[in-house]
Design a protein around this nucleic acid. Structure first.
Length: 104
DNA sequence: CGCCGAAGCTGCC
DNA sequence: GGCAGCTTCGGCG
């Protein structure tokens, strides 16, 4: 297998950020297309089930909000949390819809 | 069901 | 050292 095909995204490890952030971004990139996750689930995945808020900050602090499926992360209520990126929550909803994720 | 306040975690000034 | 933030939970009406 070609390693090049594997690195279709950006190397988070190469980016500047804390261990916590890198972990969060890594999980985001491991999320399959059309799949979403809550901040809480994400926090639990990285080992900080009580750091849902911190996770939100890390996700929104990523250097490439376009290459990072930050829009795949939603509230535990199944609603869109927020979006510090361009367009705001509006863009987030649009991206989710494009991905095939329909919100009720 | 909707609103309010408090809690636990990180990153930055 | 302290504040604010893409949240979460519990209690109350």
């Amino acid at each position: 297998m070609n390693m090049k095909s594997f690195m279709k995204k950006v190397d988070i490890e190469k980016l500047k950020g804390t261990d916590f952030q890198k972990k969060v971004w890594r999980v985001l990139l491991q999320i399959p297309k059309g799949e979403i996750i809550t901040y809480k689930e994400l926090a639990i995945k990285i080992g900080r089930p009580r750091a849902a808020r911190a996770v939100g900050n890390a996700v929104g602090a990523n250097p490439f909000p376009i290459k990072i499926p930050c829009h795949r992360v939603i509230c535990s209520d199944g609603k869109i949390g927020g979006y510090s990126g361009k367009g705001g929550v509006k863009t987030k909803r649009a991206l989710l819809k494009k991905e095939g994720v329909i919100m009720l």
